[in-house]
Nucleic acid binder design. Sequence first.
DNA 1: CTGAAAGCGCTTACAG
DNA 2: CTGAAAGCGCTTACAG
Lengths: 329, 329
Amino acid sequence: MSATIYDVAREAGVSMATVSRVLNGTAVVKDETKKKVLDAIQTLGYRPNAVARGLASKKTKTIGIIVPDVSAPFVAEMVRGMEDIATMYNYQIILSNSDAQADREIDLIGTMWEKQVDGVLFMGSQVTEELLQAFEQAQLPVVLCSTIDPEGRIPSVNIDNRQAAFDATRFLIEKGCKRILFLSGSSDHAVVGTPRQEGYQKALKQAGLPPQILECPSLRYEDGLKMLRESFHQIVVPDGVIAVSDELGVAAIHACLDAKLQVPDQVKVISFDNTRLAVMVRPELTTISQPIYDMGAVAMRFMTKLIHHENVEEYSFRLPYEITVRKST
Amino acid sequence: MSATIYDVAREAGVSMATVSRVLNGTAVVKDETKKKVLDAIQTLGYRPNAVARGLASKKTKTIGIIVPDVSAPFVAEMVRGMEDIATMYNYQIILSNSDAQADREIDLIGTMWEKQVDGVLFMGSQVTEELLQAFEQAQLPVVLCSTIDPEGRIPSVNIDNRQAAFDATRFLIEKGCKRILFLSGSSDHAVVGTPRQEGYQKALKQAGLPPQILECPSLRYEDGLKMLRESFHQIVVPDGVIAVSDELGVAAIHACLDAKLQVPDQVKVISFDNTRLAVMVRPELTTISQPIYDMGAVAMRFMTKLIHHENVEEYSFRLPYEITVRKST
DNA sequence: CTGAAAGCGCTTACAG
DNA sequence: CTGAAAGCGCTTACAG
C-alpha cells in the first residue's frame, strides 16, 4: 500500500487539511510548516490520489476527446495539438473514436460524463439535435474542432472552409483551368461537404464556368482512387481538380497518371489539409494548408478558459489558412 | 445536480447496496426488486459516477497509454487497435505523448499512477533501469507494444525484428542485389536499431556481401531524404535499399529518382511497416508488413487478462509479419 | 496560519 | 435476497 495524505500528515505532525493546502497552494502556510510537510512527502514518496481528489473537488483534470478515428493522420495531428496544450495546463485526455457514427457519439458523451471529465473536445461530421441534447444533458463544456454547428450554438475552431474552397477554385481558374472537378466529401458533411462546395460553385459562377462535383464515400485514398477509376470515362475530363483531402488529392494525381494525363501540365491538382503526405508524393501537392495542430491546440486552450471561467470574447474561431504552392499545379 | 445512487435507492424504496448490486451484477437480486431499481434509474436518468466508483473499488476502468507521438501514423494505427479492444472490454484510455524522452516517460508513469489507471501500455525506444524502476514503484501492470525489453522482464508485443530484417535482406539478395544499403534508426533503439541491423548483417555475411548502414536521426521522411541527399555522393551507390520505416522507404525512392536512378530497375527498395503510405506512392512500396493495428489490439487484450488475473501462458508475443511485394522491388 | 469534521458518491464486508 | 454502516483518500467550509 502506498502512502495517503493521512500518512503524510502524521509524519509531518500536522493535519490533513494543512497537507492539502501545501499540495494545492489554496491557502498560505507558514514556511516552517510547509517544509515539514514537503519533507514528509519526500520521505514517504507520497503522490496524491487523483481519483479521491476528483471526487472531493468535483474536478478531474481530465478532458474527453471524441474523434471519428485517430488513425487518420489529420485527426492524429489535431489530437497531438490538443494533448500538448492539455499537458501544459496539467490536464490528461481520455480519447475515444466514434467512427462518425451518431449513436456511438451519443454513447461516448454518456461515458465521458460518467468519467466526470471537465470538458469535451468534439470532432464529427455533423452536429445534430440529438448530439446537442446529449451535451446539454451531460452539462459539460464542449468545444468543436474542425467541426461546425451551423447554428453556432457551440464554440468551435475551424478555418473558413467556404472561402478556402473559393480561393482554391480561383487559384486554378487563374492558372487557366476551364474544367475544374471538385472531389468532395459527403455533401451533408458540415465541413468537407456543404461549405466547400458552395465556395467552389460561387467562384465558378463568377467565372462563368460549369461545375462538376464527385462525392466520395470517404476522404481516403483507396476510396477516392476507386471512384475516380470507375467514373473517369463518364465525366468531362478535367484540367483542374480540387480535392477535399490530401489523400483524395493523391488519388486524383494517380488517376490522372493512369489515364496518361500529365500533372501538372494537363491537369492541375490542389487539395485541402497539407498533412505530411503532401510532400511525400511526386509531384508534391499544392494544398490549402490548414493549421491542423494549431486547431487542436486552440480548441484545448479555449477549453481551459471555459473551465476556469475566464471571460471569453471570441466564440467561433476562424484560424488562418494559406495556399502552399508546390509541383501539382 | 444529477441523481446519485442514493436518489435511486429512495425512488425505488431499497438500499444503496441493492442498487449497487443490480448495477454491477455482483449478487443475485430478486426480479421484482431489480425491476423497481431499473425503473428508478430510468425515471431519474441516473448514470453512476465513475470517479466515486473508482475510489471505492480501487479500479478505474482506465488504461494509460504512453507513446512517443500519436501523430506518427504507425503509432496512431496502433493506438486505434488498443482503443478498440479497450472499448470492447469497457475500458477508457488516457493517452500521453513522451516524444521518446526518458524523463518525460518517467513523469508520465507517475501521472498514470496518480490517475489510478488499472494498467499501462507503453511504447518507447528503450527500456532502461530507471523506467523499470518507475513501473515497479507504481505497481502497475505494464505491457510493451512495439517495444522491447532485452531482458524480457516485461510482457511485450512485437514482430521478430531480427528475422524480419534477415528475410528482407534475403529477399533483395535473391532479386540479385549486391550492394544493399540499410537505412537504420538509431542503433541503440531496441526495435528499429539493434535487432534489425543484426538480421541484415547476418544475411549479408552468409551471402558474402559487404554491409553499408546509414543511421537516420528519426524515421521521418524529411530527415531521411536530407540525410540521403547529403551522403549519396560519399557512399557506395546501392542497388538495393532496406528502410526501417515506410517514410524512409519513400525517402529512398525519391533520393534515387533525384539521382536519376530508376526504382526498381536500378535500385530496389523494401521498407518496414506497411502503413497506408506504402500504397499511396509510386512506385508502390514493397514492405515487411507489420500487423500494426493488431499489435495494439493484442497488447490491450493481454492487459485485460493481466488485470483480471486470468492465467496467462504467453508473455512475449511475436506476431507474424510478411513480405508484401509491390512495385518498388 | 492551522485543525476537526463533514462530505464527495460509490463498494463491500458483515449481518441477518 | 437485502440493509446498515464503514471506508476509499481527498477537499472544503467552518472555527479559532
